[in-house]
């Protein structure tokens, strides 16, 4: 019943959700990210592509300040979420991460039941008043992650017992249970088989209705399939950023072209 709206937003939505200006990251001596400027739109899937070690995951981890947890990392530059500087000392990264959720490369369900995995975020952030509400959040999240029908009869079973694709969808359900506004995905399909990948990709497309999704991938086909915007990173620099169709059919930078056509990477 939301199809109409979906189609409209596909082209109309141009609000900047996250703006990054002059972002630099150092890991100890290593200069991992050089002067990156990006505007990430709301309710859009943005793909970061590039050869491994190009800084795309590093940049992704800047967006919800996950790099804070790495002792040797140093982040410079300005990143704003809805116009607010996320490095503002008054902002607690914990609250930021509730708004900017993250899904990781390898499915990492906690060694808890499926229900508790999804309920973890709402519990720590105090999003539910009472058990009924919590159960409702769990159900909604699992439905959004297209996992509900597969697990509704075994919510108390351990999350680690699911298949790889199910585990990753569980992690996505876990991430959306805190009702984030942005969802960061760090190569979410790299550990999955093709069928599970297809399911997750389909899910990403649906999530676009409510979230701004940023996905890091080293698969250009995947970027082309799921994203509206694409950013190409190379050697720590953002080389090119634009409409996905344009990047893949008509790249402006020769390095992008070289990567797309398989000459580097």
């Amino acid at each position: 019943m939301n199809d109409m709206r979906l189609v409209e937003r596909d082209v109309e939505q141009v609000t900047g959700k996250i703006e990054a200006r002059g972002v630099q990251v150092h890991y100890g001596e290593k200069h991992a990210l050089k002067d990156v400027d990006v505007t990430i739109l709301d309710r859009t899937v943005t793909a970061f592509i590039g050869p491994s070690g190009c800084g795309k995951s590093t940049f992704l981890r800047c967006l919800n300040r996950m790099n804070d947890t790495v002792a040797s990392a140093r982040v410079e530059g300005r990143i704003t979420l809805d116009g607010q500087d996320i490095h503002d000392p008054r902002i607690d990264p914990v609250q930021l991460r509730a708004k900017v959720g993250m899904v990781f490369q390898k499915p990492n369900p906690f060694p808890k039941s499926i229900h508790d995995n999804v309920a973890y975020g709402p519990r720590i952030h105090g999003l539910a008043r009472g058990k009924a509400e919590l159960d409702a959040i769990v159900e909604t999240s699992l439905r959004k992650a297209a996992l509900w029908d597969e697990v509704k009869d075994r919510l108390d079973a351990p999350g680690t017992g699911l298949s790889g694709g199910q585990q990753q969808r569980l992690c996505i359900a876990r991430a959306i249970a805190t009702s984030p506004e942005v969802l960061l995905m760090d190569e979410p399909c790299s550990a999955l088989d093709p069928i599970a990948t297809a399911q997750v990709e389909e899910l990403i497309d649906e999530l676009r209705a409510q979230f701004s999704v940023v996905i890091v991938t080293h698969s250009m086909q995947q970027a082309a399939r799921v994203s509206q915007k694409t950013a190409f990173f190379h050697l720590g620099s953002l080389v090119e950023y634009g409409e996905t169709g344009q990047i893949f059919t008509n790249p402006r930078d020769p390095r992008t072209e070289a990567y797309i056509t398989g000459r580097i990477g």
């Binding site: 919800n64 609250q95 509730a98 708004k99 993250m102 973890y120 720590i124």
Partner: peptide, 26 residues
């Protein structure tokens, strides 16, 4: 595994919550 910590921190848990609710039970 570090991935469990990342998962918890990525959801906006504090380090203490991560330790008490994810790391220690594991």
């Amino acid at each position: 595994p570090q991935s469990l910590r990342d998962g918890s921190l990525g959801l906006g848990a504090t380090k203490a919550e991560t330790v008490a609710q994810v790391v220690l039970p594991a």
